[in-house]
Amino acid sequence: MTLERIEHRACFGGWQDVYEHASDTLGCTMRFAVYLPPQAATPGATLPVLYWLSGLTCTEQNFITKAGAQRYAAEHGVVVVAPDTSPRGDEVPDADGYDLGKGAGFYLNATQAPWSTHYRMHDYVVDELPALVESAFAVDDRRAISGHSMGGHGALVLALRNPGRYRSVSAFAPIVAPSQVPWGEKAFTAYLGDDREAWRAWDACALVAGAAERLPLLVDQGEGDEFVDSQLRPGLLQAACAEAGHPLTLRLQPGYDHSYYFMASFLGEHMAHHARALQA
């Protein structure tokens, strides 16, 4: 598969790049960002990878320009890969509003027309993208996953659905129970249809009950987040994990909202959490 590098910027002793490629899984051209820390230049070295999943309306750009992750990635010797949040292109179906269609892939495999042809972000993030990254860069199969909001939902669900695939998982302000909140109900109805039982396969609160792996979940949630009660509802995840005996560290941060100011404040702690797991 051919990669075209379209951005190349020096950053904290390494390189912040953006690549473009034709995705067989999504049937369109996709972009992803990759930060290669200075350790990647060491001859013969292979590094672990953190996959970052962004939220509604985002592209690969939001995280790499706002979060300050490169500093911590360089400190710990971790490659950071940030894909786009949905398929893109004129041939890809879209919808009115910010919470469905382009920029709102929800990291699932759609089953309903017209979405099912292109909206297969689960398979793209879990299978196609890592295969591409692991063949093109000096990395190995030590993987971690994290994300924000819709991307936090994606990180939790992808880790829970794919035991053994990731060594660690964390999330900022995730949509923990999309089956029970307006953002998720709108997206799941369109992408998956009206059968709510089918939605459970993409809902972190439902998945923890039958999780085959007890991978600890690290979640930070701002108490001043304008979406905390209507769309995010972290208490539902806390209750589901308590009932299932699934390890969860839920940290409610007073005063913090839904923005990248919140994420940047605690990202260093998340990167250290992942680095410990990746280098164990």
Rank of each mutant, 00 (worst) to 15 (best):
A187I: 10
G13P: 02
N62D: 15
V78I: 15
D94G: 15
H258E: 01
Y51L: 07
L3E: 01
D257M: 01
V133R: 08
T189R: 15
P43F: 08
D194T: 14
F106P: 09
A280D: 14
T25N: 05
A74V: 08
Y191R: 00
Q112H: 02
A240F: 08
E226C: 11
G235C: 07
Q221G: 04
P254Y: 05
G14C: 07
A113G: 03
L129V: 08
L218W: 11
P216Q: 03
A41S: 14
L232N: 06
A95V: 06
C241Q: 03
G224C: 08
P163N: 09
G105Q: 00
A277M: 09
A204Y: 03
G222H: 07
Y107E: 11
A82D: 02
S86E: 10
Y19Q: 03
C205Y: 06
A144Q: 07
L215K: 02
F63G: 00
W202F: 13
H273R: 02
E269A: 14
G103V: 09
I64F: 04
L278A: 12
E75V: 05
G101Q: 05
R161Y: 06
P130V: 10
A242V: 01
V18I: 14
W183D: 08
L26D: 00
P130G: 07
G77R: 05
A177V: 07
P178H: 11
G184S: 10
H258F: 03
S86Y: 10
A280V: 06
A201L: 12
I64P: 02
P93T: 10
A173H: 02
G101K: 08
W183P: 12
H270M: 02
E4H: 15
T25E: 10
H21K: 00
R161N: 15
V228P: 04
G68Q: 07
A95F: 08
P43H: 05
H118D: 08
E223A: 15
Y119M: 04
H274L: 08
H8W: 14
M263W: 00
G105R: 04
L215H: 02
R251F: 01
R196C: 04
F227H: 12
D257H: 03
R5Q: 11
V181C: 13
H153D: 10
M1Y: 13
F32N: 01
D127E: 14
P247N: 05
S230C: 12
A211F: 00
G268A: 00
L100P: 03
M263I: 15
A280P: 03
K102T: 09
P178C: 13
P83L: 12
V181N: 05
Y166D: 02
A67M: 12
S259Y: 04
F137G: 04
A73C: 14
S170D: 05
A211L: 02
S54M: 09
T25D: 01
G268E: 06
G245E: 02
A177T: 13
Q16I: 03
A201R: 13
P247H: 04
D229C: 07
R31N: 09
L207W: 10
G151C: 06
L156Y: 05
A144V: 05
G147S: 11
